[in-house]
Design a protein around this nucleic acid. Sequence first.
DNA 1: TGAAACAAAACGGTATACCGTCTCAAGAAC
DNA 2: GTTCTTGAGACGGTATACCGTTTTGTTTCA
Lengths: 231, 231
Amino acid sequence: MKLSATLRSRSDQALAFLRARILDGDLKPGALLAESAVAVDLGVSRVPIREALFALERDGLVEFSETGRAYVKDLSPHDFEELYVLRLTLEPVAARLAAAALREDPSALEKNIEATRRASSLIKVTHLDLDFHEIILEASGNARLLKLWRSSGHELELWLGRLHRSKQIQTHGTREETVSTHCDLLECFRTQPPPVCERKMREHILGWREWLPAGMPVAAHDGTKSTTNRR
Amino acid sequence: MKLSATLRSRSDQALAFLRARILDGDLKPGALLAESAVAVDLGVSRVPIREALFALERDGLVEFSETGRAYVKDLSPHDFEELYVLRLTLEPVAARLAAAALREDPSALEKNIEATRRASSLIKVTHLDLDFHEIILEASGNARLLKLWRSSGHELELWLGRLHRSKQIQTHGTREETVSTHCDLLECFRTQPPPVCERKMREHILGWREWLPAGMPVAAHDGTKSTTNRR
DNA sequence: TGAAACAAAACGGTATACCGTCTCAAGAAC
DNA sequence: GTTCTTGAGACGGTATACCGTTTTGTTTCA
């Protein structure tokens, strides 16, 4: 194994490497990440590996046993539901907080949509979709909100990646649908007051669950009971 | 310095020790936490100290400079506003999700209120107040929501502790007010549907800002602009 | 055949050591 | 007096080593 030299410290390099391996599905759920073994693989000592593993635990990609061993996280449908609820909670609030700033300067969103129109592959569309949401979280001016959103993003990416590889779902709509719904949101930010933007974002996220596989448990947004989506 | 032996690892002991020192105000905002110095103080090597510092960063009690030095966090009013928004976002959702479970078994909340009635000091009332909210977060069944709430709690405790020591505020109402509002919430969980519980919890948290010092910036819950409370 | 006991290997927690970088203060140049 | 230079100490990043515990595979006994 060879570590990229673009990142400062070896911990960061190990972190990036392991994160990519886990998200790519190269490291299977439940796999033991023994410090010594990984250290030998990557040609570094155990110290940077330890730190990378702790960081991965923070991101939810790794979990520790009681005896301190690190394993690749095995996410359940319930985990996904928790993550979905989290997004459904955070993003509308972020949209409300970001509304004023985005109304004043919607250029970042416009550029993103333009890039999505020109994107050469579906995977790029997916990344630009994520970026679109991140722009809103950043514009909210609440760094903690953004931090929490990002950390949940790693787990979500892990979950969606696994579903995608097992061919159970398409994890998103087409380019046209993405562009269309994002244009809707942009128009909302441009013309509507914050509380309307909040509602719009909630609807946007609720609409996203239509892309999940049939039978995937998702929380009902009225909070009464869990249900399953219709597809 | 002597570390308590009740915790497993030296990292945990160092973490508990440093966290207590920071929250007590013994370590001032901006103070450098040099690994070697702390290690010597606590009679351990640098390794457990490093891990404790990383954990403290995760909790928001410590921040790292670009060169990797750890400093005790210096919270600004803007930081407090971010934390307040976070709670205002998370807790009502937790209340909605927890409503069904708490309706079925409100005993934990009842016991907490009873203990609050009997509490011998105001500091105990404060802790029981926190516990009351934590019970709701736990009952939400969303472990991630709980985790985020707890992590924001450390920062909030830090902020309130500093205000309290500088005599700028009383950080809470009286025992009677606490018991009274909590009884209100309990009654709501017992008799009202989840969305009503959600609204009730939002009001409860909005009411809490009345206890902040005059001029403390808090986010308006309509999301339009920041404002200041009236006291 | 299956369970219990045991031994060897694996693994994590921690201490120590080395090295490069950063910091900061004392001194030099202007 | 102010700014620039410089060198010693401080500090963090990482490697290596030691030790106790956990894990695992094998053997032994019922």
